[in-house]
Amino acid sequence: MKTRTLLLLSVGTALMILLAGGALLFQLSNQESTTAATPLGSATTIGDVEATVVSAEVDGDRLVVSVEIGGVDDTDGIDSFRLVTGDQRLDPIAAQADGRCGSISLATQACTIEFDISASEGTSRVLVLRRGEEQATWRLG
């Protein structure tokens, strides 16, 4: 192929990419904004789980979140929680301790979920619970 043909093909490809990006931006601008955060103390249903985040407090290098949770027997259900800070996404501490949630049961239970925030420099904290295709968020700070 000649150089001129290759240059015309590359310009045509660049224009198609530009048009596709513009169409995507147009689609995104017409979407509804994200869902509002669930208020503390309000019960909400996420998939097969009903959860209420009662409170959250910092205890040294840990964020302790008090929850009431139930609705399904799931031994690994607490792994559905994440803490999103300004600079990281943190998993809950999995080690068993007195009062700490270990699993989700059919009956509603009051327990705590703890996160190690020692390496996080962000002050913004959002708790996320994702079950299947649904999720709920709580603003903790």
Rank of each mutant, 00 (worst) to 15 (best):
R4G: 14
R4D: 14
L6P: 06
L6N: 09
L15I: 12
A20V: 12
G21L: 15
G22H: 14
A23G: 11
A23T: 11
L25M: 13
L25T: 12
L25W: 13
L28V: 14
Q31H: 09
E32P: 08
S33H: 15
L40D: 01
L40G: 00
G41V: 00
T45S: 05
D48W: 07
V49A: 00
V49Q: 00
E50T: 14
T52V: 09
S55K: 09
A56Y: 07
D59Q: 12
D61Y: 10
V64E: 04
G70H: 00
D73T: 13
T75F: 15
D79Q: 08
S80Y: 08
T85E: 03
T85D: 01
D87Y: 06
P92L: 03
I93N: 02
A95R: 13
R100N: 04
L106K: 15
L106S: 15
T108I: 08
C111G: 00
C111S: 00
E114Q: 11
F115M: 09
D116W: 08
D116M: 10
I117P: 00
I117E: 01
A119D: 08
E121R: 12
G122Y: 02
G122R: 03
T123C: 07
T123F: 07
S124R: 14
R125F: 08
V126H: 01
L127Q: 00
V128M: 06
G132I: 03
G132K: 06
E133F: 09
E133I: 13
Q135T: 05
W138N: 02
